[in-house]
Computed example of a mutant assay.
Amino acid sequence: MNTAAQRRGSDLARQIVVLSAVSFMLIAAVIGAGAFGNSAVQDQQGGALNTDGSYLAPAGPAFSIWSIIYLGLISYAIWQALPSQRTSPRQRALGWLVALTMTLNGLWLVAARFGTLFLTVVVIALLLAALGWTFRVAVSTREPRGGVVDSVLIDAVTGLHLGWVTLATVANTAAWLTTIVPKEWENAADAIGIAVLIVVALIGLAIAWRSSWRLTPALALAWGLSWLAVERFTGEPQSAPIGVTALIVAAVVLLPPVIVNVLRLIRPSVD
């Protein structure tokens, strides 16, 4: 088989794998939502993944961002399967990576349903790493972009996914640690929570800087942090210091990319 034929076969295989990955992710999401009579994700693992599972869990409405992320990933899977996208250099660079993130997304739901809480931490850490890698390739690749659709379904959707999973990894890890650390550690919960949120701020700023101040990761991260603050002010366990810190971190993460992008609109030469 010649090289051109091998490349065509690889392109078709990539498109099929992406469609298979999004199908797996959606099936896992439906099961995770409790659609078939099983308990929903927040009720699994003894309720550790619920909004009261730790001091760093966001309020329930925060998770509505998954609807946007899933819609974007479904749209991407359909778009990349078009014949016009089969030999796209961007798809060749990113299709397999996006498929990996969707597969890990679904595997997290499987781990939450059938595995242990520690296993969910392992899977979400792998998902975060895969998303960071995918987003880095997406914003740094030199292959020509396919216009607005390309930018939205690859850069923007991956950015939202990355931003949200950054905070979800923190919440997931905090939920696991809450179940294994001594009860006395709760006395230091405010200090620990504030320290973790400062690290989140640094991570959010690093993502923005390394991606030339892309906005979508910051939007997703600030969204989650805002709902984390709401839960700490109004839910259980309550913590005004963590709530205030979460709001400050949300602003710290969001404002720099907003300012840079506004300046770019005013002065297109701004880097």
Rank of each mutant, 00 (worst) to 15 (best):
residue 3 T to Y: 10
residue 3 T to W: 09
residue 4 A to Y: 03
residue 6 Q to P: 02
residue 7 R to H: 09
residue 9 G to H: 09
residue 11 D to W: 09
residue 14 R to F: 00
residue 18 V to T: 14
residue 18 V to D: 10
residue 19 L to F: 02
residue 19 L to D: 02
residue 20 S to D: 11
residue 21 A to R: 15
residue 22 V to M: 14
residue 22 V to F: 13
residue 23 S to D: 06
residue 24 F to M: 13
residue 24 F to K: 15
residue 25 M to D: 13
residue 25 M to S: 13
residue 26 L to P: 01
residue 26 L to R: 07
residue 26 L to H: 05
residue 28 A to D: 04
residue 29 A to K: 04
residue 29 A to I: 03
residue 29 A to P: 01
residue 31 I to D: 09
residue 31 I to Q: 10
residue 32 G to I: 00
residue 38 N to M: 02
residue 39 S to A: 14
residue 40 A to I: 01
residue 40 A to Q: 03
residue 40 A to C: 00
residue 41 V to F: 02
residue 42 Q to S: 12
residue 43 D to S: 01
residue 44 Q to A: 13
residue 45 Q to S: 01
residue 45 Q to N: 01
residue 45 Q to A: 00
residue 45 Q to K: 03
residue 45 Q to M: 02
residue 46 G to C: 02
residue 46 G to P: 03
residue 47 G to C: 11
residue 47 G to F: 08
residue 47 G to A: 09
residue 47 G to S: 11
residue 48 A to L: 01
residue 48 A to H: 02
residue 49 L to K: 14
residue 49 L to R: 15
residue 52 D to E: 03
residue 54 S to I: 06
residue 56 L to F: 08
residue 56 L to V: 05
residue 56 L to G: 06
residue 56 L to N: 08
residue 58 P to M: 11
residue 59 A to H: 12
residue 60 G to L: 10
residue 67 S to M: 00
residue 70 Y to D: 11
residue 70 Y to W: 11
residue 72 G to H: 12
residue 73 L to N: 12
residue 74 I to K: 14
residue 74 I to Y: 12
residue 75 S to E: 12
residue 76 Y to H: 08
residue 77 A to I: 13
residue 77 A to E: 13
residue 77 A to S: 15
residue 78 I to E: 06
residue 79 W to I: 04
residue 79 W to G: 04
residue 80 Q to G: 04
residue 81 A to D: 07
residue 82 L to P: 06
residue 82 L to A: 12
residue 83 P to L: 10
residue 84 S to P: 01
residue 84 S to L: 04
residue 84 S to A: 06
residue 85 Q to G: 04
residue 87 T to E: 01
residue 88 S to Y: 01
residue 88 S to P: 05
residue 89 P to A: 04
residue 90 R to I: 04
residue 91 Q to V: 02
residue 92 R to G: 03
residue 93 A to L: 08
residue 94 L to N: 12
residue 96 W to D: 08
residue 97 L to F: 14
residue 97 L to Y: 15
residue 98 V to L: 07
residue 99 A to L: 00
residue 99 A to T: 00
residue 103 T to F: 04
residue 103 T to I: 04
residue 104 L to Q: 08
residue 105 N to F: 11
residue 105 N to H: 11
residue 106 G to V: 02
residue 106 G to A: 03
residue 108 W to L: 06
residue 109 L to Q: 14
residue 109 L to E: 12
residue 110 V to T: 06
residue 110 V to Q: 07
residue 111 A to R: 13
